[in-house]
Design a binder for these strands. Structure first.
Length: 1011
RNA sequence: GCUCGAGUGGUGGAAUUGGUAGACACGUUGGACUUAAAAUCCAAUGGACAUUAGUCCGUACGGGUUCAAGUCCCGUCUCGAGUACCA
């Protein structure tokens, strides 16, 4: 029986059988298990691990995974010990939202989703080392997330050594000298104290002070509060003023939150970008996010007050152009300095600003508004009074929340001055500022500025700073836009903090008692008193005697204390997973020293660009922290990073189908227009039919046949859509239609009024090009996402064409980094290639396996070796799309050559194996080899097979190619020229003229005759 | 507004240092095989004129450099991504 089965497989390309067999083989033999030591050089290929959503994988997900898998397999062929792990970023909001709605525990849904993901990933034939799988939501994993949090808590940032240090060193400094000489990144408003003061402080006071220095700290911060989600969001979780997930409104609110002092690392995060091979756009956006600006801080004294206003400016050289100052409405000095006369106006303005949401303020940057406080500041040099205004164009959150306004040099200051009739002194030589502010700082010199007169920008900057420092009213300063990252979330489904509170001060739980596992709760919503969901837990208190989590009722604040109710944000778990993969089952350490010393860092990281300012920035921060603590050997975790493009949903029209919508109720209502057709039924619905069906059936009004045909053609997709079910009160839920035609419409709004639908239909018809009734070309579409109902699921494709076809096809679609629309139609090309490949090895009777042991022809060797060369270059350059065409060319050529030789077909199977591993394994086995092809040496390119004695030269006249001429390669330039000039076609082209010049580029490049 | 990226057939895309523009694939058209369909194979396929060679035009648009430009330079337009009162 086994023989018959085997023979069966060898007869035709039975991808289902082949793929299943080899997937089982790999799993059984743990083919891709990586060892933490090896004589081979190491190579670490990492994918951004997925969040296991309920929708499962769509065809866009695997793109990056396929690319990294090809690279990982290639590196194995090249003799590397490859680490290629996969896992799940399994904490997150959707599971929690689902839990809120259904009461289903997020762990249950998450486990179910992971199961689906695993099945789908397995079916694509990835060479993951599943023995190293991690899940951020499993206690064995988040034990170490909690552990890192504790390490961060126990650290401060020493600016003198420019690294994180243990708080013990800080305490030592305090005990010796107080905090006067401590150069730390810490909170702004820290009182100074002496060593004696420090010793005299109470324990709680000491903890309070230390908290202001720790790298993670509790603070009352203004946060982005999303009432609908009941949680705080990070800046990068907000898009256009609403939450990224769900699109709910977000407001500003003060809360006590854990924060990470990422700002301490601003400069190093910036510098590190120069040491990694990451895409420039991604580096740019991180650079932009960190937002370094170099300038000076300037201190202005307030007249008749004992107050000072500190501002940050990048143009201290324009200090003599200051004609007013502007404070953010929220600035703390506003209430102190506002005069009685201005009080009413200022308060009214503050109230009006507070009412405007952040979103309104952002959307409306044109309206100029502000109010005069009545107070004046004193110019540091001229001692002239400067009116102090407030205005909402100054942001409380950036710099000091105050600016020195130089209307002649800044457009916003200029507009403000114009609007309120404030003088606009000109300090630029020979520049007209009557219309707008002068912005080109490099091209002029300073005037009307006392000691700065006549100086160009750079010199003026230096001198201004020098003079300010002499006065004690300023200094050179670098400012960063990067804010500390809020680390608390009011959610259930996240890592609990290993923290309990004594006298309101946070205490860390010892490492040996970790993990602190998530407690069970009745409800996943915030409590009635507004506490986070963990406030619902009954067993959620820390007993310091037994070192266990106990019931809340036992809290006595002497031995049993309340635990932290917040959980960690989504990026906590994803900031350390790449290191944990190196030693994922270590129970005593986050990873062993041997493991991290061996694997070092990620060599290739592939994932989406949407993580540029989230995950990728935070992970770099944690890595640098761990580097400072001597835990990791590299301060950047990934050497090379590639952003794979998105696969977008695509239109149905690429099939060449006709689209029609109908709500006609009878045949009489049916009006077949010229280009579209409608289909009469009792209910409204949407139908796609092909041109031929249209012609054959519609014209004959044989509608049953259409229905059958559509059913058959679209099996695997939902086909004829019954939108009647979603009709209520003239509102049509268009989502099924969107899903059906695989096109995304009208801003993805979930529901559409029928009127609007008709309008859409009109617009949509207009955007469709009808070319002589042949083609219908669709419009652009969006990212595949569940909410847009334009998802193409890989299961159906695997079923119909197999994983190898899908892998090849996704690579063939275009450059990896580029976004591209999904179009199932083209997959037959990739599938056809595999069939042709199979046939090369199966030229025996009735398609039986048969290769010859004969020496292949010269041409076949040439085909093979140029393919080796090209494919190797392409993989190294991550140009996977072109290597797929190279394979196609090779197979086409070998087919034409009737090449059947083992000496060509064996190396060919290895070449193909990273791309289409299943078929390659099967062919390898049929070629008589034992075991997996995956670690066989990559074929060696040999130049000698490509050496030629002659080459076809393109011959052009005045740059236009006219004919080709075969010439020996060993001819000299003169000989080539002579040969060309002697050619009859040359004479024909010249028609008696004498050429002015003949350009010969040897080695078969080109010959150009100028005449 | 600012920053970055991109515009090539009906479609996705090739052309890696300036050297045959449109590889490869899809789609389309015609043909072979078949009762038929599927599958497979063969041929054609940037446009226009000529249908035997051949000629002209073509890489968003307008200039320029060069023997030679999709590629380099200057200007313009369009699209996409990111960011947004950042002082």
């Amino acid at each position: 029986m086994a023989n018959i089965e085997k023979k069966d497989i060898s007869m035709h390309y039975d991808f289902k059988e082949i793929e299943k067999n080899w997937q089982d083989f790999w799993a059984k033999n743990q083919t891709f298990k990586a060892e933490n030591n090896s004589d081979k050089p190491k190579y670490y290929v990492l994918d951004m691990f997925p969040y296991p959503s309920g929708a499962g994988l769509h065809v866009g997900h695997p793109l990056g995974y396929i690319a990294s898998d090809i690279y990982a397999r290639y590196k194995r062929h090249k003799g590397f010990n490859v680490l290629h792990p996969q896992g799940y970023d399994s904490f997150g909001l959707p599971a929690e939202q689902y839990a809120i709605q259904t009461g289903q525990h997020p762990a249950v849904t998450t486990a179910a989703n992971i199961k689906t993901y695993r099945r789908q990933l397995d079916q694509l034939g990835f060479s993951f080392d599943w023995s190293r799988e991690v899940r951020t939501s499993s206690p064995e994993y988040y034990k170490w997330t909690q552990w890192i949090f504790i390490q961060i808590f126990n650290s401060w940032y020493n600016k003198d050594t420019d690294k994180a240090e243990d708080v013990e060193t800080l305490i030592a400094k305090f005990s010796a000298d107080g905090n006067a000489n401590v150069n730390a990144v810490c909170d702004d408003d820290i009182e100074s104290f002496s060593a004696a003061d420090w010793k005299a402080f109470s324990d709680v006071k000491k903890q309070e002070i230390l908290l202001q220095y720790r790298l993670t700290y509790l603070a009352d911060t203004e946060v982005n509060w999303c009432p609908a989600l009941g949680t705080v969001l990070a800046n990068d979780e907000i898009v256009n003023g609403v939450s990224e997930r769900g699109g709910h409104p977000v407001i500003r609110k003060k809360m006590t939150q854990w924060s990470m002092r990422i700002s301490a690392y601003a400069q190093r995060l910036l510098d590190g970008l120069n040491t990694v091979d990451w895409p420039q756009p991604l580096k740019d956006s991180q650079t932009n996010w960190i937002g370094r600006s170099q300038g000076a801080s300037v201190v202005f004294n307030v007249k008749d007050h004992d107050e000072k206003i500190e501002v940050f400016t990048i143009r201290p050289d324009t200090i003599f152009g200051v004609s007013f100052m502007t404070l953010a409405p929220e600035h703390e000095l506003v209430s102190k300095i506002t005069t009685e006369a201005q009080k009413a106006e200022v308060e009214a303005y503050i109230e009006a600003t507070a009412k405007r949401s952040e979103r309104d303020r952002m959307a409306d940057v044109k309206t100029i508004s502000g109010a005069f406080t009545g107070a004046y500041a004193e110019h540091p040099f001229t001692k002239e009074p400067i009116p102090i205004w407030i205005g909402d164009y100054v942001l409380a959150g950036y710099g000091t929340g105050a600016v020195m306004s130089v209307p002649c040099g800044d457009q916003r200051d200029y507009d403000f001055a114009k609007h309120f009739n404030i003088p606009i002194p000109n300090i630029f030589e020979g520049v007209d500022i009557s219309e707008e502010a002068y912005a080109d700082k490099d091209k002029t010199v300073i005037a009307n500025s006392d000691f700065l007169n006549g100086l160009p920008y750079k010199k003026a900057m230096k001198l201004a700073i020098y003079e300010l420092e002499k006065l004690g009213q300023g200094e050179g300063k670098i400012n960063y836009r990067l804010r500390d990252a809020v680390f608390s979330r009011q959610r259930y489904w996240g890592e609990p903090f290993p923290v309990y509170y004594v006298d309101g001060m946070p205490q860390m739980i010892e490492k040996e008692f970790l993990p602190i596992a998530l407690p069970e709760v009745e409800k996943y919503l915030p409590t009635e008193t507004g506490e986070p969901p963990l406030g619902n837990a009954e067993v959620w208190a820390w007993d310091t005697v037994t070192n266990t989590v106990v019931n809340n009722s036992e809290i006595n604040n002497t031995t049993v204390f309340p635990l932290e109710l917040n959980t960690m944000p989504g990026w906590a778990g994803s900031s350390q997973y790449f290191n944990r993969y190196m030693d994922p089952h270590n129970e005593n350490e986050i990873f062993s020293k041997e493991a991290i010393d061996y694997w070092q860092d990620v060599d290739l990281y592939i994932g989406g660009s949407e993580h540029a300012t989230g995950h990728l920035l935070y992970s770099r921060f944690w890595q640098k922290f761990m580097f400072d603590k001597g835990l990791v050997p590299k301060d950047e975790f990934a050497k090379k990073l590639i952003n794979q493009g998105m696969i977008t949903g695509t239109s149905a029209f690429v099939y060449g189908f006709w689209v029609a919508f109908s709500h006609f109720n009878s045949l009489e209502d049916l009006k077949v227009e010229d280009k579209t057709m409608a289909y009469p039924v009792e209910r409204p619905f949407l139908l796609l039919v092909s041109k031929s069906v249209y012609e054959n059936c519609v014209k004959s009004e044989d509608f049953t046949e259409i229905e059958d045909w559509v059913e058959k053609k679209f099996s695997g997709y939902s086909n004829i859509i019954d939108i009647d079910k979603s009709v209520s009160q003239n509102t049509y839920d268009i989502r099924p239609i969107v899903q059906h035609v695989n096109v995304s419409l009208v801003n993805s709004s979930d529901e559409l009024n029928f009127e609007d639908f008709l309008k859409w239909r009109q617009e949509y018809s207009n955007s469709v090009l009808f070319q002589e009734g042949k083609y219908i070309v669709g419009r652009e579409v969006e990212k595949m996402s569940k909410s847009k109902y334009n998802v193409v699921n890989p299961d159906a494709i695997c079923e119909e064409y197999g994983a190898d076809s899908l892998r090849l096809y996704e690579m063939f679609l275009g450059p990896l980094e580029q976004s591209k629309p999904w179009n199932t139609a083209g997959i037959t090309g990739a599938h056809g290639f595999l069939k042709k490949l199979w046939r090369l090895y199966h030229l025996g009777a009735e398609g039986a396996f048969a290769v010859s042991e004969d020496e292949p022809s010269k041409d076949s060797f040439k085909t093979l070796h140029k393919t080796i060369k090209k494919v190797e270059e392409d993989i190294e350059n991550f140009s996977f799309n072109t290597s797929v065409s190279t394979f196609m060319i090779a197979v086409n050529e070998l087919g034409a050559q009737k090449c059947n030789s083992r000496n060509v077909l064996e190396p060919l199977a290895i070449l193909v194996s990273p791309y289409a591993p299943h078929i390659a394994e099967e062919l390898w086995k049929q070629l008589g080899h034992e075991g997996s092809i995956s670690t066989v040496d990559f074929p060696k390119f040999e130049e000698k097979y490509l050496v030629e004695s002659s080459k076809e030269y393109p011959v052009s006249f005045n740059g236009k190619m006219r004919f080709k001429l075969e010439l020996p390669l060993d001819l000299s330039k003169d000989e080539i020229e002579a040969a060309v000039m002697a050619h009859e076609k040359t004479a024909q082209q010249l028609q008696g003229r004498t050429p002015k010049k003949v350009i010969v580029v040897p080695a078969g490049k080109i010959i150009n005759i100028v005449g």
